[in-house]
């Protein structure tokens, strides 16, 4: 009797294991079964999609580029118009291309444009391209030049496409925060002539200009070579010790101080657009957070790709000056400048 009971238990256990294995195999078979690919059914409505092509901070005077794609089934109609409406009217130079681009595989992958409509018409906040060809799909590029009125505010762009069957579709991009900072590229400085730099004016002066703008000269550019030390290219505040301004006779009234912090390899993409650097962007927050307390009023031995954080004596401006190029007795500088709200 006991033997029979044990035999029954074993039999049950074997049955359970069998069932479990069968279930596991079935699951395995189902999980391995591939669904056949089916072409997705296209929507029969007018469709659109937009992307922002420009990276980094949105700076007054600079372009923000968008690409707006729109399409409708050919048997339903054709595209009629495309409109971009900015929440704050763009500055002069804001426009939309009347070309749709494709990648030409027969021409080394060149971005090739095909005219699809009349040139863009901008009126106030709105820029419109009206289609002149029979097309059911296109991607147009829109370039918004950030106006002074948008500084420190946010901007949205509403793209609208219309088709011949009366349909209309819209996509709103943004809101995008517009930086408070300014930017100036490729300021050429030369030893002993164009050597006086104003952060406030974002300009370079010779001695005559410096005398006329004495109250706004923050830095002096100089280039020196010594056998005993490496001086090279330097940015020095006019109020710095004369050791750092050898042979410089400052124009009358040029005597401001500044704080400088030398850095290397902080290659801002906006300041070095021709050098294809990565995605490093200096933005408003960097100027707000940098602390230049106790930093010196000179930076010597500057090389290409070096940079200098600057704070003006009155605390009104902070700037990042990037050294794009250097050569004997000359350098090319670019700068981003931020106005401090609570300046003394």
């Amino acid at each position: 009797m006991i033997i029979h009971s044990k035999y029954n238990k074993m039999q049950h256990r074997t049955q359970y294991i069998g069932c479990f294995l069968l279930a596991a195999l079935s699951l395995l078979a189902v999980s391995c079964k591939k669904d056949e690919y089916k072409l997705p059914t296209a929507s029969n409505k007018l469709q659109d999609q937009a992307i922002k092509r420009t990276l980094g901070p949105n700076i007054v005077g600079q372009q923000i580029e968008f690409a707006y794609a729109m399409a409708i089934l050919p048997n339903k109609g054709k595209l009629v118009s495309c409109t971009a409406e900015a929440s704050i009217a763009g500055d002069s130079g804001t426009w939309m291309e009347n070309k749709s681009y494709f990648t030409d595989v027969n021409n080394s992958g060149k971005d090739t444009g095909v005219v699809i409509g009349s040139p863009a018409v901008t009126s106030g906040n709105t820029t419109t391209v009206t289609y002149t060809v029979d097309t059911s799909a296109a991607t147009l590029r829109y370039y918004y030049v950030v106006p002074e009125a948008a500084r420190g505010k946010t901007v949205s762009i509403k793209f609208t496409a219309k088709s011949s069957d009366g349909e209309m579709i819209s996509t709103t991009m943004g809101p995008y925060t517009i930086s408070k900072m300014d930017m100036k590229l490729n300021l050429k400085v030369t030893n002993k002539t164009l050597m006086y730099i104003s952060i406030g004016d974002m300009a370079v002066y010779d001695s005559t200009g410096a005398a006329a703008h004495a109250g706004s000269i923050d830095l002096v550019y100089l280039y020196r070579t010594y056998s005993t030390s490496t001086f090279g290219h330097a940015l020095v505040a006019p109020a710095a010790d004369t050791t750092y301004l050898p042979g410089v006779i400052l124009p009358s009234g040029v005597n401001r101080n500044a704080k400088l912090l030398k850095v290397f390899n902080l290659r801002d993409h906006n300041l070095a657009p021709d050098e294809q650097y990565g995605d490093t962007f200096i933005d408003d927050i960097d100027f707000e957070k940098i602390d230049l307390t106790g930093d010196p009023n000179y930076a010597i031995n500057l090389k290409q790709d070096a940079g200098v954080w600057v704070e003006t004596a009155d605390g009104k401006y902070r700037a990042y000056v990037f050294v794009n190029k250097v050569a004997t007795n000359t350098a090319t500088l670019s700068m981003k400048r931020y106005t401090i709200n609570n300046a003394k």
Partner: peptide, 9 residues
């Protein structure tokens, strides 16, 4: 250290 080095940092 090189001439012009900021000894404070």
């Amino acid at each position: 250290v090189a001439f012009g080095t900021d000894l404070t940092h």
